[in-house]
Simulated scan of single mutants.
Amino acid sequence: MTDKPTLNVGLIGTGFMGKAHVFGYASAQCVFDLPNRFTMHSLADVTEDVATAAARQFGFGRATTDWRELVNDPEVDIVSITAPNALHKEMALAAIAAGKHVYCEKPLAPLASDAREMAEAAEAAGVKTQVGFNYLCNPMLQLARAMIEAGELGEIRGYRGIHCEDYMADATGPFTFRHDPAGGGALADIGSHALATAEYLCGPVARVMGDCVTMIDSRRDGRGGHRAVEVDDVGRAFLRFESGATGSIEGNWIATGRKMQHDFEVYGTKGALAFSQERFNELQYFDTADRTGRQGFRRIEAGPDHAPYGLFCVAPGHQLGFNDLKAIEVAGFARAIAGEIDEPFNFRAGLRIQHLVETIQTSSREAAWLDV
């Protein structure tokens, strides 16, 4: 049997999402029959101590404080970018120029114009790209989409989506890179997930009416003073889909008590679906064909019938986790690199989400409906 080719991975950033990328690569090649293998080759972070410790923990062969050195290493095949949002563009463009495939966390870039430059550069260079929207890899979301496309819900009339967390709820918390205008705010940071899910399930959004609000207008700056916050803490939008359906989304990082609420509801003429990330191995389904007196939402529980769940566990109800979704995302990217499938969510798709975000932000400033 011919050995599978190896792809050398270079990781920039070793925080929450950096670790998630490592788990994704490690799990994907164990769970899936991929066309290639991964080697954790090089890792970059801001200090030598952090980089060296992370390389030792994650099994990388090299550590550096210079991400440019990593990007330009001829042995590196894939560059994974999990650095702060404002740095994505420079890092990605450098990696593309060096001929690397790029896996970048969302949001792709603070501005749609930056995201467009990144997408066009990747397409011109012929490299493969992936943006980290791993919630879309959940078998329950894939089932929901299949049910909608098959007409099981009838004509889709309405949609509600929300992504709420509370990691910015404390007004005494410090100013972070996410509060910088280049970071994007709550709508770009987590509302982008709500937008991606809305279009994944219901198709393109045609018009938006936005409302972006800053509730905590200053934060400690780390030097004994305070710095003004210009980005939104809550971003909401009414949506009109090309299909004629209407809906709404919300991105909120000051939602007290919420750790991971990525929820949606879809309403059709024949039925409805409801989903909560807090119980993300379940999908609730209402069927109008059920006889009177027996109607109600019923639970569909994730199991081996919902690919690729069965590759992780042979028993239903034992549940997938967040990092399993990352492994599914990595597997799709690996197959795209090998030319087996199209890129599941490339830079062009990431540009689309950033374009939606900016249109909603503009709509909020102008207090008007805007075409996308």
Rank of each mutant, 00 (worst) to 15 (best):
T2V: 08
T2L: 04
K4L: 15
K4P: 04
T6P: 06
V9W: 00
V9S: 03
V9R: 01
G10I: 04
L11Q: 10
T14I: 01
G18Q: 03
Y25W: 14
S27K: 14
Q29K: 03
Q29E: 15
M40K: 10
S42R: 13
S42I: 00
V46I: 13
E48H: 00
T52P: 02
A54W: 02
A54P: 03
F58R: 04
G59A: 05
V71L: 01
P74Q: 11
D77V: 05
A83I: 05
P84V: 01
A86F: 10
A94V: 02
A95Y: 00
K100H: 08
K100I: 07
P107W: 00
A112S: 11
R116Q: 09
A119Q: 04
A125I: 04
A125V: 04
G126W: 05
N134Y: 13
L136D: 06
N138C: 13
N138S: 15
M140W: 07
L141P: 01
R145E: 08
A146D: 15
L153K: 08
L153H: 07
G154I: 07
G154T: 11
E155S: 10
E155D: 12
I156P: 10
R157A: 12
G158Q: 15
H163F: 14
C164P: 00
M168C: 07
R178H: 12
P181W: 01
A182I: 04
G185K: 01
L187N: 04
A194P: 10
A194S: 13
T197I: 15
T197P: 03
A198G: 12
Y200N: 10
C202S: 11
C202W: 04
C202M: 14
A206M: 08
R207A: 12
G210H: 09
D211Q: 12
D211P: 00
T214S: 06
I216M: 13
S218R: 14
D221I: 02
G222F: 06
G224C: 03
G224D: 07
A228D: 13
E230N: 07
E230M: 09
V231R: 06
D232W: 05
D232A: 02
D233A: 05
F238K: 15
L239H: 12
R240H: 14
R240Y: 09
S243R: 07
T246Y: 10
A255Q: 11
Q261P: 00
Y267M: 13
Y267L: 15
T269Y: 08
G271T: 08
S276D: 10
Q277A: 15
E278G: 09
R279A: 14
F280H: 14
T292F: 13
G293Y: 02
R294F: 12
G296V: 02
V314S: 14
V314K: 15
Q319D: 14
N323Q: 10
D324V: 02
K326E: 12
K326N: 09
E329L: 06
A331I: 03
A336R: 01
I337D: 03
I337S: 03
E340A: 08
D342L: 11
P344G: 07
R348T: 08
G350Q: 04
L351E: 10
L356I: 05
T359H: 05
S363M: 03
S363G: 06
A368K: 11
A368Y: 01
D371P: 06
